[in-house]
Computed example of a mutant assay.
Amino acid sequence: MLKVKDGDLDRLGLLFERYKRPLYGFFYNMSKDGELAEDLVQNVFFRILKYRYLFRGDGDFKTWMFHIARNVSHDNFKKNKIRHKDPIEDWEDHIRDDNDRVTSIQKDEELQLLSMAMDRLPEEKRELLLMSKYQDKKYKEIGDMLGCTEGAVKVKVFRALQDLKAVYKQLEKHM
């Protein structure tokens, strides 16, 4: 990134190839829309190019990039003022055990319930869980992105998990 900042714009392609998948996963899990996720990844790299002069190099590039990604996500949802839902029929069975069909159906139902529970969480909590559990971000990195301490992130993630558990159990009762 420091080379991109210094004007070697060809290096941005290398960064794109390295980070497009984690960004796509982040945006897809937030929106459940593949085309939108691809567009938002492009927007992140456009902003990286536009604001490259702001990268100081004293922190982790990935943290800086995901900070931009969060801003892109927030801007998109503010602009559209809609929340994208994942229709249950669009969920595929990711974990299939052909030897035990009952187990497979049960896992599919659990994934559907989990997806529904995640969709019912406020955007901030869903984002925290996606970054910490699915993107494997360290609490310190998340704290840097959110502008808070590592301890505050731990508390926020714990509360988000508690809320997810409560929503999941509520959905489970109604099924």
Rank of each mutant, 00 (worst) to 15 (best):
N29H: 12
L111F: 14
I88W: 04
R101M: 12
F61A: 06
D98T: 11
A160E: 04
T149K: 00
Q106E: 10
D144I: 01
D58A: 07
E150I: 03
K32D: 08
K85E: 08
W91P: 00
D39E: 10
R96T: 12
I48V: 15
K81Q: 12
E110K: 13
L49P: 00
A37E: 00
P22W: 03
K133N: 14
Q42T: 03
I95Q: 13
F61Y: 10
D144W: 07
S115E: 12
F46N: 01
H94L: 14
R52S: 12
L54I: 05
R56C: 10
M145L: 05
V153H: 00
V44R: 07
S132E: 03
R70I: 10
Q135H: 08
D86L: 15
R70K: 11
D58C: 09
H67F: 05
L49N: 13
G57M: 08
T103V: 09
F66R: 00
L128I: 02
N99P: 01
K20M: 08
F77K: 10
L129V: 06
A152P: 03
E35V: 13
F77D: 12
K165T: 12
E110V: 10
A152E: 06
D33P: 10
M30F: 03
M131E: 04
D60G: 04
A152R: 00
P122S: 10
F45S: 08
G59T: 08
M145T: 04
L36N: 04
R47W: 07
S132F: 05
K140I: 01
L111I: 11
E38H: 05
R70P: 01
D90M: 09
G34K: 14
K78G: 09
M116Q: 11
Y24V: 06
